[in-house]
Amino acid sequence: MDKNNTRTIVRLAALVIVFVALVLMEEPTSIPVCNINANTLEKCRPAVTGNNPPPPGIECCIILQAADLECVCKFKSHIPILATKSSKVHDLLRKCAINTIPPACQALKN
């Protein structure tokens, strides 16, 4: 086998190894903050998007009920779902039966 064939086989083997590694990798997650994984808040995005958002799903409400909302609202600029109209965030909390809105959430402004 000449050098060109050997190089081609080595490159192909390396490509296969990279592909297998990508397939086997777990979905990336973020570091939990405020008793939640910030990526899980994406389950709430439909409930605060658009002019007439749908009601939040049960998964969204479970996430919000477990979260330290005082802490979450302090990170408004870092959590895209909170970068929406404060009235939509307040409606979301109300629809998830969260009746006590922490002061940091009351101060949400665009």
Rank of each mutant, 00 (worst) to 15 (best):
I79P: 00
P103H: 03
G57V: 01
V18N: 05
N51I: 12
L69I: 11
H78Q: 13
I98W: 04
C96T: 08
L12E: 06
M25V: 03
C44S: 03
A97H: 13
I62A: 14
C105V: 04
I81H: 06
P80M: 04
D2S: 12
I62G: 01
V89H: 01
V33N: 02
K76S: 06
C60E: 05
I58L: 10
N52K: 11
P28F: 02
P103G: 06
P102M: 10
D2M: 01
P56A: 12
A97I: 04
I36L: 15
P28S: 08
K43N: 06
L24G: 07
A104D: 12
P102N: 14
P102G: 13
A38C: 01
V72A: 06
T8N: 10
F19N: 02
A107S: 12
R11V: 15
M1K: 02
V23Y: 09
V16N: 05
L69T: 04
D91I: 01
P54G: 02
K85V: 06
I81P: 01
D91M: 07
P103R: 09
M25C: 09
V20F: 11
N37A: 10
F75I: 01
K109A: 12
S86N: 11
G57P: 05
N51G: 15
I17A: 15
T84A: 04
R45I: 11
A13T: 15
A97F: 15
P102L: 06
H90A: 06
E70L: 00
E70G: 15
L93H: 00
V18L: 14
L82G: 01
L24V: 13
V10N: 06
R94F: 13
E26C: 04
I62N: 08
C96Q: 04
A104H: 02
I36V: 15
T29L: 11
R45E: 08
F75R: 14
K76Y: 00
L108A: 02
P53I: 10
N110S: 12
E42N: 01
L64D: 02
K74Y: 07
V23W: 11
P102A: 15
A104V: 04
A38D: 02
K85H: 12
S86M: 00
L93A: 05
H90R: 13
A107G: 08
E26L: 13
K43S: 15
E27K: 10
S30C: 08
V48R: 05
L41Q: 03
V18D: 02
L24C: 09
C44W: 08
V89E: 05
A38Q: 10
N37T: 05
F75S: 05
M25W: 06
M1Y: 09
T29H: 04
E26T: 13
A66Y: 00
A47I: 04
K3Q: 13
I79E: 04
P80W: 10
A97S: 13
L12Q: 14
A67V: 07
V16M: 15
V48S: 03
D2F: 00
Q65C: 02
P28W: 00
H90Y: 10
I101C: 08
D2I: 05
C71S: 05
V72P: 03
L93V: 03
V72S: 01
F19H: 09
